[in-house]
Design a binder for these strands. Sequence first.
RNA 1: GCCGCGUUGGUCAAGGGGUUAAGACGCCUCCCUUUCACGGAGGAAUCACGGGUUCGAAUCCCGUACGUGGUACCA
Length: 509
Amino acid sequence: MSKKVRVRFAPSPTGGLHLGGVRTVLYNYLYAKKHGGDFIVRVEDTDQTRFVPGAEEYIFQCLEWCGLQPDESVLHGGEYAPYRQSERKEMYRQYAEQLVKNGHAYYAFDTPEEIEEMRESLKAKGSHSLQYDYNIRHKMNNSVRLLPEETQKLLDAGTPHVIRIKIEPNQTVSFTDMIRGEITFDTNTVDDKVLLKADGMPTYHLAVVVDDHLMKISHAFRGEEWLPSAPVHILLWKYLFGVNEMPEWAHLPLILKPDGNGKLSKRDGDRLGFPVYAMDWTDPKTGDLTKGFKEIGFLPEAFNNLLAVLGWNDGTEQEIFSLEELIEKFSMDRVHKGGAKFDFEKAKWYNHEWIKKLPASNYSGRVKDIFIASGIEVKDEAYFISVLDLVKDRCTLLPDFVQQAGYFFSAPQTLDTEAVKPKWSEAKNDFFEEYIQQLTALATWDVASIENTFKDLAAAKNIKPGELQLPMRIMLVGGKFGPAVFTIAEMIGKEETIARIKNALVIFG
RNA sequence: GCCGCGUUGGUCAAGGGGUUAAGACGCCUCCCUUUCACGGAGGAAUCACGGGUUCGAAUCCCGUACGUGGUACCA
């Protein structure tokens, strides 16, 4: 029972990486790391019709951004290679044949049209099951009905065929799910799933069992959408390798759309204006770009955090967790059974918390890129980071820094004159004219000097300093936001401060 | 239709026979700050429904409703 923990994430490289997928990765990763095990990524590319160029590389880029590196994968190697199912194609047939030999599977020669016909007639009869199962398999074109010679003849002639699992009726299949406990199925409701397709590729059902066995997977975590096909997998384990060898299962709850009902999909993100994919994904066929969490300005720390607690918590009031803490505290039995609606507002809150929590140097590189893209030049790295640290309380998404810190690097393009003009007066104008003089004469340029000069002069002019601070802020910042105004003056320097006041005076006057 | 799984404020959720049913997001009010945030104090808002079991049910059991997933030679 002291089997080494080995878990796997098995994506199908068909497009963008959905946040639910990332959460599955996360839970796998956390479980593996907590128990000193291995995290494997196996590419499930058995459907050649759904091959999408670039999708596989993209998935690994997403994992890298999240900091969830596999121990074994297509990219990272490992002793159970290859990790791409298309490259393991030859391995699967023998298991399928073995099942046929043992009477647990059979060859089926039905064409798609014939199957369609079968369903139509079943529907016409008012049957509530349209499945290819024990009820109808002896009426179909397969080796259950055919004589062995007939079957052999078709096989020899190279007739296209699949191999289907033969589900015995009137049985009960049950297993223990780490999250849901005992789950039971009646085999009468399970259909004869295709195991090996006509093109020789396995379906997911065969491949997942064979590969989990070959790769010595100890725990299999996947989305709840797989629950209905679990009995097929259990049976396969039973017939092929024995249920004692079977990994422990956990079916993770789904992530639902925020409004209405149903699984969260890319479409919902487009419709509601938030990302669903981890990173930007461009469909190579249509050229359509779908925005990712990374690109709209999320921090990987926040992304992991918010995903981890969407369906899990440690039982305390803690909400902010680093990856290390998650590894330490994660446990599958505290994962929820029910699906959770995704709340983008809360997601943003997590990012805000992480921006505040982390030193700006942690993400200054990314912010710098955003600045450059906005046409703002950053020359002094240390100054840049100190500015970011000063304003980070005001930023929820990385691009917010452009608004919140841009004026430290270039004078505001526009001034919020409406905030000043109604109360503007000759006296205030005089104050600033004279303030410029005094600032120019200032020996030391620091917050205290700038502020004291301001207050002394205001007192001398008999104007409340408060009435002058907002204009001063608009002059330097352009709007009603930002940290203490004298701190800003200190940081942008004497020359720049005076220049901005002068410029504003022209506009206000 | 059939099968599986689920259901605590608008959302994420703690609690698993006796609690004033935590906390967070969002919303509202106030304090701090003559900016915006941060921070702090407060507020509105919840156990899907119906039956049991029990002295006592959000908690256990059974139904119902609702939701959700599956029902492919897709994963």
